[in-house]
Design a binder for these strands. Structure first.
Lengths: 354, 354
DNA sequence: ATGAAAGCGCTAACAC
DNA sequence: GTGTTAGCGCTTTCAT
């Protein structure tokens, strides 16, 4: 029946008192006689009254809402970040407004604008390219409490991030220790992600330093076709590689499947290492070697950094770079099988690109 | 420098006109002379002005915000639902406030209350138990536009859901066709999810109708220990089962791993079928047989159902039950190996519970 | 102890 | 064409 939700005015009327009194009683601020208190309480109850966050926010200039922007929820790493952030925010009475940038800087910028207009109290986000990001610039302009996740600190903003370069260097070392020389680096939207670039750079640097060949950059621009087919084509065009470092586990797992479709044995014909440490990597056989990261810790830490500013608490310490990742070995990484160097005979179902 | 964001009043002042004029110009509603228009525009630009959604919502009683509640983002099926919902909402200029119920009806109810207080325009959610849900009752009370996802229609609310019973019946048939007789149904929080229960019921019914034994209910209450160990113990206590139907792919995959740890071959010693159709099922070897569902379609459909009410559009048709799923076969389902019926010798590393 | 009133930022109805 | 004003729901002085 009641179509318009009851307001504080309705309660005041029903209780036979002023709206200020209702506010005081229901908020437990200020004093009131037993009698009025009772009347207000019962009126509120009878009406099923709840404060409108809108009126309250307008007046208090705090929405108890935090914006959260990630590239996509399709990558479980970000789903976990968001899950942790949401959980932690909820604990403190904050809600999360979610936006996905879909690896698009324009969308990313729009999202920030919208969230600012919605008057979020703070922002937690992973941007695609932190350096020179218009989105981060805007946030800085507005002096909005903000923390980055999986991006390194930029624009003076705190961040909970993985030391991509150091992690990638460890991967290079691991390949080296198994005797690999010519490897590749596989990325899905290389130019759209500073994370992928940092991983590549660290990997390439280390490779050169420890006497391996410069890794071939295997880039998939856009997922216009079926990913597995694109990967298959890419792989068969690079039979010389004995190992591939993928910019994330998702890709690594897909590459593993594509490689098998081509008749390759893992790791004899091709070793694979991923990045992120998603649990799926432990379900496949052989296990995916990877860089384990802690999306949960990152999401929680980032929210707490923002909450610290909001609630005027001491800022939590950001993790030491060396603790942000751990190399996890797995059966997908092994020594290349000797005599398999030319590898032409492995190409089967998919066309090579020559 | 500017710490307080500029308001319409600041713009009016700077442009030397009234606030109504600013509103009219910037909203493109009502008319204005070229001259004022120019002045307003440049003032707004100079100040970096943006409307506050708060003031606007308070006055228009529409927040352009939709609440979204799912049990968890850890299950990729819900991550996909949310991703699709977010994307679709954004297309229409709506934002999503995200909440996770963590399979807890109290949290679920709280979340609805909070979202109502935040004056969301609508709600899209998966509840744990639709029947008699306090949360849904409250939503009904408030006449809030709402659509369920993965729950069957309840409280007169529309829903985008999978026909769990029919899907489960197909699974029974599949087991039967491979000669299985004694199967089990595996669920993680059986009593907390009507979806799991419906799947079990459909499965059990069909089993009985087609002459199979009543499936053993394998229930894991809470994930207090490491899931794999719990599964290992459960499996070794039920060596008589030749096949297991898991209430979701996540569990099925974990069970597959646990079974292998026990030395079981899949599917010879144990067949496995999941539910959901997550892509990971195609990365493992053998492929996971499962019920494919379409989380993306569900999420998008649900949002559109809510938007239809909000924007007074024709309500989109909910999918025909038969089209909501498809049985996908895979190597994890096969005939039980004859002579393996007593199966005692397969138990290896983990204790059976006798 | 409690009510009246101002004001948060905005839109719309109503003057002029 | 444009300014004034009421009012959306709330909190917070300021009187009483």
């Amino acid at each position: 029946m009641r179509t318009r939700p009851p307001t504080i005015k309705d309660v005041a009327e029903q209780a036979g008192c002023g709206i200020a009194t209702v506010s005081r009683v229901l908020n437990g601020t200020g004093s009131a006689s037993m009698e009025t208190r009772r009347k207000v309480l019962s009126a509120a109850d009878a009406l099923g009254f709840e404060f409108s966050a809108l009126g309250r926010s307008l007046q208090s200039s705090s929405t108890k809402t935090i914006g959260c922007i990630v590239p996509s929820l399709a990558n479980p790493i970000f789903a976990e970040v968001v899950q942790a952030a949401q959980h932690e925010a909820h604990r403190e009475g904050y809600q999360l407004i979610l936006a996905c940038s879909e690896y698009d800087e324009v969308l990313e910028f729009q999202a920030v604008r919208t969230l600012i207009a919605k008057k979020v109290d703070g922002l937690v986000l992973t941007v695609n390219n932190a350096a020179g990001s218009k989105a981060l610039e805007l946030i800085g302009d507005r002096q909005l409490p903000c923390c980055l996740v999986y991006n390194r600190p930029s624009f003076g903003l705190p961040s909970w991030a993985v030391d991509n370069r150091a992690a990638a260097r460890e991967v290079a070392g691991a390949f080296r220790s198994y005797g690999h020389v010519q490897t590749g680096f596989l990325a899905l939207r290389f130019n759209r992600s500073d994370r992928a670039r940092e991983r590549y750079e660290g990997f390439a640097e280390a490779c050169s330093e420890i006497g391996m060949a410069k890794p071939v950059l295997l880039e998939i621009e856009e997922q216009e076709g079926h990913l597995l087919e694109l990967l298959g084509a890419l792989l068969s065009g690079h039979q010389d590689l004995t190992g591939i470092f993928a910019s994330n586990d998702f890709l690594a797992l897909a590459a593993m499947k594509a490689a098998r479709t081509l008749g390759k044995r893992i790791p004899d014909d091709l070793s694979l290492v991923g990045f992120d440490g998603i649990s799926t990597g432990l379900l496949v056989d052989p296990h995916l070697a990877t860089i384990e990261t802690h999306p949960h810790t990152m999401g929680r830490g980032a929210i707490n950094s923002v909450l610290a500013k909001l609630l005027d608490r001491p800022m939590p310490d950001q993790p030491a770079p060396a603790t942000t990742f751990r190399f996890r070995t797995g059966g997908s990484l092994g020594p290349p099988v000797a005599g398999k160097a030319d590898g032409r005979e492995a190409a089967t179902s998919l066309p090579s690109n020559e």
